[in-house]
Design a protein around this nucleic acid. Structure first.
Lengths: 228, 228
DNA sequence: GTCTATAGACCGATAGAC
DNA sequence: GTCTATCGGTCTATAGAC
């Protein structure tokens, strides 16, 4: 009897609060935002559980540790994103063989753009999380991720080689490095200049605007004449 | 008497250890490296004082607080670097009036390169610190720095306007944003792709190599044709 | 200026009741 | 699954001897 009453109470709360997600999901959502805002070290389990309105012990019950929670937060977004990029590559290459450079760049940008515009997947949150995690040099990136997703870079390197066949391997590696660096930081909203200025032009972070200015810049950099 | 003996002992130690810098400098040097490696939050005063071989209380004696120490670490490098860039601009503009784009880009890159190659100023350490601080959205950058150094961006914006007179203000703001983003992350050694691959080509971080591939990429992006 | 000792607060993790 | 209570550890900052 008391069990039934308890379940009814919970269901009433869910309806009241608009289908409140389960505890694990609530923790993931809040942790994602706090890890982005404050970083891994500066985000305490107490901050997470208070804002998620769950008990402190729930994190360790559902995820085992703070490190494991971080891994769950991270992989929840990374895996679908990279699979989306590779699916784009598959579709485009099946249709037309080797890709021209712009199609190749767009096959990466389109899934990033779709993610950035989808609030149900946290919007631009994950790109910013990746940015922080990269700079913080988290153990997860050095150990777990690099092995699981190396196929991603291999596929893109191979496609870029065919799109830019005149570039030597070292040239190509550097240009891909610079190109992905600028794409990635554009989506993450990392703006060095905003430190020093209050300009509102670039800070809007509208994803469509990013793409409008980003794509020509990246393409031009990739096809730049080789210095002699 | 005991004072003289104590001073002699210190002097002997200095000679033995090769002119050991004073306590404040030792703290600054170690803190700079640890803030880069572990971030502000994850770096404790205990880590700093132990590696600097000074007493724990020395930080609060010399700098007042952990926040104030961070500010000292940061401004010790930023102020001379930005002054170096503006001095380059002054010299070049005095010699030849409005600068062609490549000279303009180099007026920023040369001081960065000089800093990166100078171990006595911490080498590339400061660019990496700036990168972390930017991503960590530290209060210092939002409040103190942005006011003091806004003249830096104003000078460069004005010079870029004259070098690229056909660009509308919004176009120019975005291209400067993307250009400084890629230059800055190249010097900081931030490489998204290295997460997924073990390629050693780009990870060398040789500053001259960076410039060799960076400058053509940035120039090409800045002068890219405008999309119709 | 340098040091010891410690205050006062917060941390991640867990045992155990329900 | 959820909760309380708590352990053992860390942190920054400071008081006060020398």
């Amino acid at each position: 009897m008391s069990k039934t009453k308890s379940q009814n109470t919970i269901k009433a709360l869910e309806i009241m609060e608009g289908n409140r997600p389960d505890t694990a999901t609530r923790i993931l959502d809040v942790a994602e935002r706090l890890f982005v805002e404050h970083g891994f070290e500066a985000t305490s389990l107490r901050m997470i559980t208070q804002q998620a309105e769950v008990n402190l012990a729930a994190v360790n019950y559902h995820f085992g540790s703070k490190d494991a929670l971080f891994e769950s937060v991270f992989l929840r977004r990374l895996a679908p994103l990279l699979e989306g990029c590779l699916a784009e590559l598959d579709t485009l290459e099946a249709r037309q063989g080797d890709l021209p450079l712009e199609q190749l760049v767009l096959s990466f940008i389109r899934p990033c753009l779709a993610l950035s515009k989808d609030p149900s997947r946290g919007g631009a949150m994950f790109v910013r999380l990746l940015s922080r995690t990269l700079v913080e040099n988290h153990r997860l990136l050095r150990e777990t991720i690099s092995q699981q997703y190396s196929v991603f870079v291999q596929r893109y390197t191979s496609a870029f080689q065919r799109a830019l066949p005149h570039l030597e391997p070292e040239q190509l590696a550097w240009r891909m490095h610079l190109a992905f660096s600028v794409m990635f930081n554009a989506f993450a909203g990392n703006d060095v200049l905003k430190i020093f200025t209050r300009s509102q032009i670039v800070t809007a972070r509208d994803p469509d605007m990013i793409v409008k200015y980003l794509v020509p810049f990246v393409i031009a950099g990739l096809v730049a004449p080789i210095e002699g």
